[in-house]
Simulated scan of single mutants.
Amino acid sequence: MAALAARGVGAIVLGCTEIDLLVGDGNSTLPLFDTALIYAHAAADWALAT
């Protein structure tokens, strides 16, 4: 991830449901976006809105 940051990457998408078991905020200086968490929040918001 450090090499990606050095190349100008602005953030990293954790696009696999298990990757958050290996990678966390302490492993990167870049913002991390956990898609499983994003989908879970969206599903909860949708369920509570109906």
Rank of each mutant, 00 (worst) to 15 (best):
M1Y: 05
M1G: 03
M1V: 10
A2N: 12
A2Y: 11
A3L: 15
A3G: 15
A3V: 10
A3R: 15
L4M: 14
L4H: 09
L4T: 00
A5F: 01
A6Q: 12
A6R: 14
A6G: 03
A6N: 06
A6T: 08
R7L: 09
G8I: 05
G8D: 11
G8A: 07
G8S: 04
G8T: 08
V9L: 02
V9A: 08
G10T: 12
G10C: 07
G10V: 05
G10L: 04
A11H: 09
A11G: 11
A11L: 01
A11C: 03
I12T: 03
I12N: 08
I12F: 08
I12S: 05
I12W: 06
V13E: 02
V13C: 02
L14C: 03
L14I: 05
L14F: 07
L14K: 08
L14G: 03
G15Y: 02
G15R: 01
G15C: 04
C16R: 00
T17K: 03
T17W: 01
T17I: 08
T17V: 07
E18D: 12
D20L: 04
D20M: 09
D20W: 14
D20T: 14
D20F: 12
D20K: 14
D20C: 10
L21H: 10
L22H: 09
L22Q: 13
L22R: 06
L22S: 12
V23Y: 04
V23L: 14
G24R: 10
G24Q: 01
G24E: 05
G26W: 06
G26E: 15
G26N: 14
G26D: 13
N27R: 07
S28L: 03
S28E: 08
S28F: 12
S28N: 00
T29Q: 12
T29M: 08
L30R: 01
L30Y: 02
P31I: 13
P31G: 06
L32A: 06
L32R: 10
F33A: 13
F33W: 11
D34K: 04
T35A: 11
T35Q: 03
T35N: 04
T35I: 12
A36L: 15
A36I: 14
I38Q: 04
I38L: 15
I38F: 07
Y39L: 15
Y39R: 15
Y39D: 07
A40K: 09
A40P: 09
H41P: 00
H41I: 05
H41D: 07
A42W: 02
A43D: 08
A43R: 09
A44T: 07
A44N: 01
D45A: 13
D45V: 11
D45Y: 05
A47S: 04
A47K: 14
A47R: 15
L48V: 05
A49I: 11
A49E: 14
A49K: 10
T50E: 13
T50P: 00
T50Y: 13
